[in-house]
Simulated scan of single mutants.
Amino acid sequence: MLRAGAVVTASGVAGCLGTSRGPTFEEGFEDGLGEWGRDAAIGPEVDLPDFEWRIEVSTEQAHDGERSLSVFNEGDYDDGTCWAVRPISVAPGSYTATVTVEFWSESESFNTLRDAVVRLGPEPPQAEEDFPSPGVNTTALGQTPYGGLREPLWLADGWRAYQFEWTTPALSTDTLYLAVGTSVIWEGDSTHYVDAITVELSEV
Rank of each mutant, 00 (worst) to 15 (best):
T198R: 11
I42R: 03
L17E: 14
T9M: 11
E35S: 15
G80I: 03
T138D: 07
E106N: 06
L171T: 06
V194E: 01
T19D: 12
R86M: 14
P125R: 04
E128S: 15
G32L: 06
A84M: 10
C16F: 13
D39K: 14
E56R: 13
G65Y: 08
T144P: 03
G28K: 05
D78I: 11
G37F: 03
G75M: 06
F103A: 14
W36G: 01
R114S: 06
G34M: 06
T19N: 10
D189E: 13
W36A: 04
A84T: 03
G34C: 02
G181N: 02
E151V: 09
L155H: 04
D39G: 08
A6H: 11
D195Q: 02
W104N: 00
V90K: 03
P44E: 11
G15H: 10
A4H: 12
D79T: 10
V13R: 13
L141F: 09
P169Y: 09
V118N: 01
V57K: 12
R160C: 03
V46H: 04
S133N: 14
S20I: 09
S190A: 13
V85A: 07
V46K: 06
L178C: 04
T139V: 04
V194L: 08
D64R: 15
C16Y: 12
V194F: 01
L141D: 08
N73Y: 10
A14V: 14
S20C: 12
R3T: 15
E35F: 07
E165H: 05
Y95S: 12
S11W: 13
E35D: 15
G12S: 11
G43P: 00
G121L: 08
P152D: 09
T175A: 05
E45C: 03
L178E: 01
A14T: 15
S70P: 02
E27Y: 06
M1W: 04
G15Y: 12
E106P: 00
S89Q: 12
G28V: 08
S202R: 15
A156S: 15
P125D: 08
V194K: 00
